[in-house]
């Protein structure tokens, strides 16, 4: 099989994730208007990538595994994107307050 990451790597990833949790919590208290969601989701996405690549060891996995790991997010975006294609163009939502 593939090489086994060291304990040090795992602990470093854990530390990064914990720090990011604290960062996302602190940043959320600052009012940035529409950017709060962007920042929060950006950090969450980054944390997710760390978990997938290192804890789930996808970094060392075959392209096939990477493809399947990525496919889920692609389809999720299809789902959400096309939901909002309808909702956003209906003019139902309060103006300028998509989020």
């Amino acid at each position: 099989m593939h090489e086994i990451p060291s304990v040090k790597t795992y602990v470093a990833i854990w530390a990064t994730l914990t720090i990011l949790t604290f960062v996302t919590y602190s940043v959320a208290k600052i009012d940035m208007g529409g950017f709060n969601i962007v920042v929060a989701m950006g950090i969450a996405f980054f944390k997710m990538m760390l978990v997938i690549l290192f804890f789930m060891n996808v970094k060392a996995e075959s392209p096939l595994t990477k493809l399947f790991a990525g496919a889920g997010f692609f389809w999720l975006i299809l789902l959400l994107g096309q939901f909002f294609l309808d909702y956003a163009t209906r003019g139902w939502m309060p103006e300028g307050k998509m989020w």
Binding site: T21, T24, Y25, A28, K29, I30, D31, M32, N36, I37, A40, M41, I43, A44, K47, M48, V51, I52, F55, M56, W99
Partner: peptide, 28 residues
Amino acid sequence: GLYWHFVDIVWIFLFPLLYLIGLHQHTT
């Protein structure tokens, strides 16, 4: 292990979505 990490990832998204967005409206 894969399953466990996945459940962790779901929470990584639930946390900001449910708890954090809107936090600034109450603390500042």
